[in-house]
């Protein structure tokens, strides 16, 4: 048996095994197919072999980052969750994955990365708190910029500005897409009967973050919550395939609620206060020193050689 495959993905939170849709898709597929992966849950994409997350590292064929490619790799290693599907069901899988990518994904990007309130309150905050210093100042804004750019290009409108108009159009498509998925799922446990396939992994990956991460601007969430079978479908997968995460969820939620409250970052606040006072004092001293209000004189040097004074003046 070859060395285990290594999968790098974003760390989980909010009762999810990972916060990122692509990572969730891959994780779910690996569970469905029973692939023994060595999973590294990290918060620094620079430590992934491809520079982005998720990434699958194989011994022979290098590293892969797109979910579809990762799934193909796993399939090559004989971990195939779609083994029982008929040719027509494989065709349906391809079609519904396209539906997700074209209709739901733009709205998901919008709701997590572009909608100002959600981005500032939830997404940027999570990434800023979890990505190690100093990348946490850089990466969230970079991802934000990239996602906005992506929306612009996909919509074919270079002057696109986030706003009500755009939101309406994107959400209209996304709500329709969720309704269609719910109709297709019907009363079945998974999309193709009793065992999960790659389509289930994709749907779960895209919908689970919506279900679990509470957003201030939650129109998509409200709609998902009104579709009972889809909500049940995501919860089922979480309970069946990621039992450890769903058990952790309540504990985490409590801490989240505390975080959300007013006396929020009490420990952080104290630390921040001390840091800012130190910073201010440093800045004042620096200014005083540079502008010559305070000068440091090496008394022994001065006694011996008078020309040191000249040097100090030059520095001023």
């Amino acid at each position: 048996m070859a060395a285990p495959l290594q999968l790098y993905c974003w760390r989980g939170d909010h009762g999810l095994p990972s916060v990122d849709a692509d990572c969730l898709t891959v994780l779910a597929y690996a569970k469905f197919a029973g692939a023994p992966l060595k999973v590294h849950k990290i918060t620094n994409p620079w430590r992934s072999p491809t520079g982005i997350l998720p990434a699958l590292k194989t011994r022979e064929e290098g590293s892969f980052s797109q979910p579809s490619k990762i799934i193909i790799q796993l399939r090559k290693q004989k971990y195939n969750a779609d083994y029982d599907l008929s040719a027509k069901e494989c065709a349906d899988t391809l079609a519904f994955v396209s539906l997700l990518e074209e209709k739901l994904l733009p709205a998901l990007i919008y709701t997590h990365w572009v909608d100002a309130k959600n981005y500032v309150d939830v997404t940027r905050r999570w990434y800023a708190e979890n990505i190690p210093f100093p990348l946490n100042f850089l990466l969230p804004n970079r991802i934000h910029g990239r996602q906005l750019e992506r929306l612009r290009l996909v919509r074919g409108d270079p002057t696109l500005e986030p706003g009500e108009q755009l939101e309406k159009e994107l959400y209209h498509d996304a709500l329709e897409c969720m309704t269609l998925l719910s109709q297709r799922l019907g009363s079945q446990k998974f999309f193709f009967g009793d065992s999960p396939s790659s389509l289930d992994a994709y749907v779960f990956g895209h919908l689970a973050p919506l279900l679990k991460i509470k957003l201030p601007n939650g129109k998509l969430q409200q709609h998902l919550n009104s579709l009972d079978n889809l909500r049940q479908f995501c919860t089922n997968i979480l309970v069946l395939y990621f039992p450890s995460e769903s058990r952790e969820a309540p504990a985490k939620k409590v801490s989240n609620h505390a975080d959300g409250g007013d006396f929020d970052n009490e420990p952080h606040k104290r630390r921040n206060q001390i840091l800012s006072v130190l910073f201010a004092v440093g800045a004042m001293l620096g200014y005083a020193f540079l502008s010559g209000i305070i000068t440091i004189k090496h008394t022994p040097a001065r006694l011996e050689e008078p020309h040191v004074d000249e040097e100090e003046e030059e520095e001023d």
């Binding site: 539906l99 269609l180 019907g186």
Partner: peptide, 18 residues
């Protein structure tokens, strides 16, 4: 019916997407 309409939309996106 509903399921067929969902499939129709999905296949249309497949054509657009690929």
């Amino acid at each position: 019916d509903d399921v067929q309409r969902a499939e129709m939309k999905a296949y249309m996106e497949l054509v657009n997407n690929m």
